[in-house]
Design a protein around this nucleic acid. Sequence first.
DNA 1: CTGAAAGCGCTAACAA
DNA 2: TTGTTAGCGCTTTCAG
Lengths: 336, 336
Amino acid sequence: MTIVDVARHAQVSTTAVSKVLRNAYGASPAMREKVQRSIAELGYRPYAAARGLRGQTYTIGIMLPDIRNPFFPDIVDGVTDWFTDTDYQVLLGPGCNGEEAEARVTEAMIDRGMDGLILIAPVSPRSHLEHLANLVPTVVVGRHGHSPRYDTVVDDDLTGASLIVDHLVDLGHRRIAHIEHLETDPTRLAEMPNTLRTEGYRRAMSARGLADETDVVSTSYTQEGGYLGAQQLLAREQRPTAIFAGADFVAMGVLEALAEAKLSVPEDISLTGYDNTSFAALRSISLTSVDQAGHAIGGNAARLLLDRITDRGRPTVQVKLSPTLIVRNSTAPASK
Amino acid sequence: MTIVDVARHAQVSTTAVSKVLRNAYGASPAMREKVQRSIAELGYRPYAAARGLRGQTYTIGIMLPDIRNPFFPDIVDGVTDWFTDTDYQVLLGPGCNGEEAEARVTEAMIDRGMDGLILIAPVSPRSHLEHLANLVPTVVVGRHGHSPRYDTVVDDDLTGASLIVDHLVDLGHRRIAHIEHLETDPTRLAEMPNTLRTEGYRRAMSARGLADETDVVSTSYTQEGGYLGAQQLLAREQRPTAIFAGADFVAMGVLEALAEAKLSVPEDISLTGYDNTSFAALRSISLTSVDQAGHAIGGNAARLLLDRITDRGRPTVQVKLSPTLIVRNSTAPASK
DNA sequence: CTGAAAGCGCTAACAA
DNA sequence: TTGTTAGCGCTTTCAG
């Protein structure tokens, strides 16, 4: 079942069929109609691999670092929803943790002639991202910092962190500690969301006159990291009255450490996460967190990508979305 | 940068390059060496879309119904691990809930010339699955029932359910209720894991002489379903002393309903889930659950698929893996 | 507005 | 063992 069959059945040339397929200029309504009917009748579907050889594959690749992170599906949904009712199909690259795996997946996507790439929170150096963007339209999600080569969509992590600090300060907390993801790579120091959350925390503490109370523990954005970070904090002479974990996952680990220490949340200590994942919403956990509007992030990324596919030359755009605070039961007024 | 460039650079024919690329028969070690060097030197990468036009695309598609379900990533990892160090690249189709979305995604994968498909817990009728399997090598994961067209990998849900029932009975429970996913479609009634869990529950209850205590509530495998199911069970004259939720998600909903009713787990009531997701492992939840060995499921699916790509004619195989019980703190001896 | 014909990059028959 | 050649299904000039 090829374009030739359709052409024969509709008594037109293959060129005509191709034009109808692509909604291209130069086909009369009558011909369109006729071809459409044949396509439907024969149940013809264009072979994307063959299309790719000359034009587009109508395929968009999303690279995401970790399927397990419950925050990413929201972004993916935002992307796919945007592409529904277009001819594009979205495919995901599986678990890419680390630069090497990222390179493997992105190369594979380019080899498969994908028309555009959406990279979610990539860890590769900026030069590699720009290299990719030179080969194929690319949108980078979750990396701050502008590039003349690719568009970006980020959530305002500085503001997000301050939402949490302000909330806790308003509740009367002063000793508010933060558990961050240790970052050493200089590019990533400047561009990754985690570092901006820490920076936002510092600024917000200062803004509320609590610069002296600033207390950052560097571990990692994992449950383990939260557990270890909390242990360090609990060993302080003056224990913090509130902990701002850099991600909901991290807060899970903190909960474990607190449980071990027979401390209860929020009575003994207030706790917040970040990302508003489904974990946070669980009634038995009920974690105050920051919602990043993942669906909107995905939608914007899709829109920018489609724009760029249409016009590769236009200047790059940076979209920054605003987070919102979701208050739940893990935060309460500071005791005394 | 095409195969022609490589051929010129290595001073050989394109055929030779192609053979080296595919490790095909008929290229001397010397030539292999020479071509490999040119490929490396030029940084050449074959264009998968073009390969697809004649032979394979070296792409495997995984369709999974819901990225959010924390059980699926294990399977995906199992698949990708198996394909690491092969020339194949795995790509995922995003959220396919419902027959229509499944069809869209599978069609898209076929249009893109994928060499094989792994369908995880598909809901499409068997005829559609067989139709797909006729077009491209296919392995179906998580559907019981044999087909002469495709291989299957399932976990033994009958045994899994009995593990839970036996565990609870051994703890002294007799009034053990089960919350199941309501299924009406006849094919799915026979093939879906959820129905087999219910059947396993019934059989195990009977085997332990508790046929009269059998108590099944039909809702759905969602948090909401668990919540509603638990409410029904709590309204019983004789409240069950243990609840076997058909999935960890469902158990989450049950936990909510129990919390509302001021009942504590496991003191007032024992609770189990199924799937051993990361939720279950959370210390503050600590849910007894059944582990399905997702990684092994994925690995087996990958192996079968590769076998079938190699030999499309061989008879189909059904792999059934055995689940294990993970006992945590949500189950305890029945009071009195 | 329509169609004929020349490839896109690669593989697979077939010849040498 | 090697190379020549004819396509795979589609898009895209370029004539008509």
